[in-house]
Simulated scan of single mutants.
Amino acid sequence: MSKRCSHGTLLHRTRGSTLLDVHVRHCYPCQSTRNTPAKAPLHPWEWPSEPWHRLHLDYAGPINGSMILIITDAHTKWIDAYVTRGTTSAIVIERLRRCFATHGLPRMIVSDNGSCFSSTEFAKFTRRNGIKHKFVSPHHQASNGLAERSVGIIKSGLQKLQEGTLETKLSRLLFKYRITPQSTTGAAPSELLMKRHLRSTLDNLKPDISSNVYQSQLNQKLVHDKTSNSRCINIGDPVFARNFGAGATCLPGDIIEKPGPLSSVIRLQDGREIRRHQDHITYRHCESMEPVASSQSGQQFDPPLPEIVVAAPAGSDAPKTSANATPFVETKGITSDSVSTGTPRPKGITSDSVSTGTPRRSMRREPFA
């Protein structure tokens, strides 16, 4: 049995020998003209665990005489694009600096073997910033599939937009892409990268719940405050607290704590502590207190003055009062300071204390013998 090779060589098979098969497999002309083998199994890039960990770079264009540098984040699928007039390493480095100033330095960059990415200047830039640079296999676009997919999105999107310059159309396209949920991650790139929702004109069609609630609360407050009275109750003020149990209607006490703007903790005179709303608290005026300004009327309350008794010296018959005589005033343990402050003192007062401007109750004058 014989077999002819593809380039015309006649080969003879011998019994029990594999010489024919070995020769055919090692035939150089046959191997060099063989059909393309089947595609290798897909080996996807590992999904980074954090945003801005690995970036894929590529160029799109020329479009209207310009090139577009496209930067894609592997974690969030965020796309940055910059219009350039060339593809030199200096231009690429300048656009990357602008991008890194906003989002920070990545850990890895993936690109093809273009001269702008494989130059010594670009290698120095990545090494100086601590960025690992990986190259994909030449002429195999699937190895940098994320960047190639981003190039396709930019090209098709710019063709659909008719109005505006290239920069204007690119900005509009990027904004719409970034707020649209991505098919792979199921979330918008802006939400994954910035952790927030970017507001767009579509949000005008949605009801603003917070604004509606605020307006409703404001209307309720305006209606309620028409019949209300603002009072200022501070810690330490004596008050009466409403009693909701058996006994007196109001219980005297003092404010010891303000847990809320309208809530107070009151220590009663028997030592108990209760919590009441401002609507259940009234101010308590004490006779032994110093002048206290009322929070409602703004008036001052003076404490009662001590009683003053004016007596004549012993042994006198209390003659008639003389207009030119100097009176002798006997007090019950007060001085001039006690007349104005209400604090008693053990010694008597001087003649100056009689002429003070503080009103006195039923003072009788007797002549001095």
Results as ranks from 00 to 15, higher is better:
S6W: 09
G8E: 01
T14E: 05
T18V: 09
D21Q: 15
V24I: 10
H26D: 03
C27F: 11
Y28H: 08
T33R: 15
N35T: 09
E46D: 12
E46Q: 11
W47C: 00
S49D: 08
Y59V: 13
Y59A: 08
A60E: 06
P62I: 05
M67Q: 12
T84V: 12
R85S: 13
T87I: 15
A101G: 15
S111P: 02
S118F: 03
T120D: 13
E121I: 13
N129W: 10
G130D: 00
I131D: 07
K132Y: 08
K134F: 10
F135Y: 04
V136A: 11
P138V: 06
H139I: 01
S150R: 07
I153A: 07
G157S: 02
L158T: 02
L161F: 12
E163S: 09
T168K: 14
Q182E: 02
Q182M: 00
A187G: 06
P189Q: 02
L192D: 02
T201H: 14
D203H: 04
D203Y: 03
L205Y: 13
V213E: 11
V213Q: 09
Q215W: 04
Q217I: 06
K226L: 13
S228L: 03
N234Y: 12
G236Q: 01
V239C: 04
V239M: 04
F240A: 03
F240G: 01
R242Q: 12
N243W: 02
A246Q: 13
T249W: 04
L268K: 02
L268S: 01
Q269R: 09
G271W: 06
E273L: 04
Q278C: 04
H280C: 02
R284Q: 08
S294D: 12
P303S: 15
P306K: 11
I308P: 07
P313D: 10
D317M: 04
A318G: 06
S322K: 12
P327R: 01
T331E: 03
I334T: 12
G342S: 07
P344Y: 02
P346F: 12
K347M: 00
G348F: 14
I349H: 07
S351A: 09
T358A: 14
P359W: 12
R360N: 10
R360V: 15
R360W: 14
S362E: 15
R364E: 13
R365D: 01
P367A: 03
